[in-house]
Amino acid sequence: MSDNNAAINEELTMFKDMVLRFMDQEILPHYSKWEDDHHMPREVWHTMGRAGMLLVDMPEKYGAADASFDVCQMIQEEMCRLGLHSLATGYNIHANIVAPYLLNIGTEEQKDYWLPKMATGEVLTALAMTEPNAGSDVAGMKTNAVKEGDSYILNGSKVFITNGNQANMIIVCAKTDPKAGAKGVSLFLVDTSLPGFSTGKPIHKIGQHSSDTGELFFENMKIPANALLGEEGRGFAYLMQELPRERLGCAVQAIGHAQGALDLTIDYVTQRKAFGQTVGQFQNTRFKLAECQTELEMCKALLEKHMDKFSRDEMTVTDAAMLKLAATEMQLKMVNECLQLFGGYGYTDEYPISRFYRDARVQTIYAGSSEIMKEVIARGMLGR
């Protein structure tokens, strides 16, 4: 093992111990109530900020921990293993997606202003791409921003936006040149305290109940010209540049979530008895668990390969698509098999496996559906 790998492993161990203590003390005692209420208090993000869990892999000069990329992914994986998928989804957007957009594309002024506030939890963030009539079709979006002097006037709406109702700043994708298709898309750092911004009722979902999912409206919203993130008209290119990390994060969550479901199931089948023996002694149960473990290990190996490629800045859009496709499809299949082994109890809210089942379903939809992933992979193979 190289000195660098040893240092990363030591750092991961240190942070993991801290993360597990934090979850045990600050999150797990309240999480079921948040899920029942379909609401996670905004204070959670302040608490996470005080614990040093936000933006862990951002530079120290922005008030972050300057830890390795692996630490940020480990936090998501542990959240999902513990069944905290709603929290992990919001965390992924704020710390694993929006923060890198700012770090990689933003001006020093933008980074100095937003990143320290994001690290403390004072500012919660979101990314707004999807529209009511334009999901994966970014080029077909209708939200627009018109330049007027030293400002832009923003109009339009977005839907299914994680952290949308509570966010203080949102990266908004908008058309600055409606005739240019994908080349007419720009990104803006939108301060939600400005006039012209509003939200609809929180969207209730099949799973991830306490994850804040909102519908956003921009009505003649005047935003300063320095809210432009990067260059005008390069928004689609920036999205393609940053999507691999987002999809890698989805795969990390899938693997953590699947591991958590498997742990619950192993514990259940070794205790539950039927026909004079434990459920775990039936051949069908043993074979199903063996299949689950094998598929999980294969996805872990694929993740390790692409985490390494990402660290060398070599992971391609096609790599990320294959990883997300494999990991999230495995996750859905695995939690389904696990719930089946619980029998009727698995279909009740009393047993956490039911929440694992519900929460997993969206993983093959957001950040690019499995169908889109297959198309991306095929284009990479066929060159068109």
Rank of each mutant, 00 (worst) to 15 (best):
F217V: 12
G260T: 10
R312C: 06
E148H: 05
V190P: 02
F69V: 13
C250P: 01
G49C: 02
E26G: 07
D37R: 11
G156H: 01
N226E: 15
R358G: 00
I171C: 08
A254L: 13
D349F: 10
A88Q: 02
G260K: 03
A290H: 14
Q110W: 14
L187R: 04
K374V: 04
T364A: 06
A274K: 14
T125L: 03
G121C: 04
Q340P: 00
Q166M: 11
L20A: 02
P244N: 08
A7W: 02
G343F: 05
N226G: 09
Y347N: 14
M74T: 08
E232M: 09
N104C: 13
V159D: 04
S86A: 12
G346W: 00
L325D: 14
L189S: 11
W34E: 00
I266Y: 05
T89G: 01
L189I: 15
C338W: 00
K305A: 10
T294V: 09
L323A: 05
E371T: 14
D36F: 08
K273E: 15
K324P: 06
G184T: 15
L194E: 01
I203D: 10
A128V: 03
E350Q: 14
E375H: 15
M14A: 10
W45G: 05
H306M: 09
N165V: 04
C299F: 11
S186R: 03
A225F: 05
V335H: 04
A301V: 15
Q110P: 14
C72V: 14
G383H: 03
L382D: 01
K201P: 06
Q259I: 08
C72P: 01
N92M: 13
W45N: 01
V138G: 02
A321S: 15
I372C: 06
R379P: 01
H46T: 03
Y62R: 07
A261D: 04
L127C: 06
S157M: 08
A65C: 08
I8A: 05
K16E: 10
P202Y: 06
M298A: 10
E10A: 13
K309L: 15
V138Y: 08
E295L: 09
P244G: 10
T176P: 07
V190S: 13
M48W: 00
M18W: 05
K147Q: 04
E337A: 00
N336L: 05
P195Q: 11
N168Q: 08
T120K: 08
N104G: 13
S157E: 14
Y366E: 12
M298P: 00
V71W: 06
F69Q: 10
R21P: 00
V172N: 07
V98H: 03
A145I: 09
W34V: 11
K309C: 03
R312Y: 11
